[in-house]
Design a binder for these strands. Structure first.
Lengths: 166, 166
DNA sequence: TATTTATAGATAAAATATATCCATGATAAA
DNA sequence: TTTATCATGGATATATTTTATCTATAAATA
């Protein structure tokens, strides 16, 4: 069981975009350069974040990406599900119906108990992810970051951010 | 993010083995036939369950597999970790150090905050899996199974189980 | 209006992970 | 010694993830 690398990239991108002033944007190219990751694959994930209404995209020159809502209202669950999909990690294949002791459909009115138990654990995982907001994570980052990092990042942002007309 | 099919197979096998009397065993072939799944691949997972001391194996004719401890002391976490490994689903690749604003190692004494947040959620998942015992799941199964299933399974078990010497 | 720079979408190649099968060796019972 | 079983490793196939490329479309600018 492994989460896509894109999840890590997406969370870092959302955190960086949260440091921009209101309507400013960063291009996909700039986001990829800042994190030292391939632009071609990152764009695929940014697209999904836009589709899930976590980011907004602004086309054309001076365009790019920005948050669609404040960091307080974006959780890790939102991002994980946008990038990784909403299908559960455990997928019941109904093996209880197979083999010599399998019966017809009428014998299985309820969902398999093993599936239900696995789902209970996945609900706990999703609940925990929903508790983690980007605001909380960003505050923790700022509080414990090396003192050199913040001004360095602010300088880079000033050089690379754009302010579209609308 | 997807759990291996082997996890589902392993849980069903452990539940079935829990229905055997004390020292009796079922062969890998019998376990595969009962669940209608490929024997060759199932054996790979059974081996891991043995290595994790969830099952015991008995070689030779009349040999097979049986539980290494009572169902009350086997949790879904034990089985998931035996089959799927213990590595976390989220693997931090330290992209915070890359790109134009990356600094030397001294700037990162602590684990990445994003990684810590993801790990908090995974701990919640593992805790929930550790709450689910095979005894609990089996009791729930027996209580809500179609009345035809139990005698059918008992008959099949009587035909297929073995009692090794030791 | 034409040009430039950006995102959106589709496609495909490469790398990795998962699933399946098969052949061989070791162990213990008959 | 023969037989039925588990243990191991390798060969093959399928699925998923990662990366790259191409075309289309939208918006700002000259």
């Amino acid at each position: 069981m492994k989460l896509s690398d894109g999840v890590e990239w997406a969370i870092h991108c959302v955190m960086l975009l949260g440091a921009l002033p209101q309507t400013a944007t960063l291009s996909g190219k700039a986001l990829a350069e800042f994190h030292g990751i391939p632009e071609s694959y990152l764009l695929k994930h940014l697209k999904r974040l836009v589709a899930s209404e976590i980011l907004e995209s602004v086309p054309g020159p001076r365009g790019g990406y920005r948050l669609a809502r404040p960091p307080k209202e974006i959780t890790l669950l939102d991002i994980v599900q946008a990038v990784n999909g909403k299908r559960p990690a455990f997928r019941c294949t109904e093996i209880r119906r197979r083999g010599p002791c399998g019966l017809d459909d009428s014998a299985y009115p309820r969902c398999c108990g093993i599936n239900r138990a696995m789902m209970r654990a996945e609900v706990a995982y999703r609940d925990a992810l929903a508790e983690e907001t980007m605001k909380g994570i960003t505050d923790e980052f700022i509080a414990s970051a090396d003192p050199r990092i913040i001004p360095l990042g602010q300088g880079w942002l000033a050089d690379n951010m754009r302010s579209p007309k609308s």
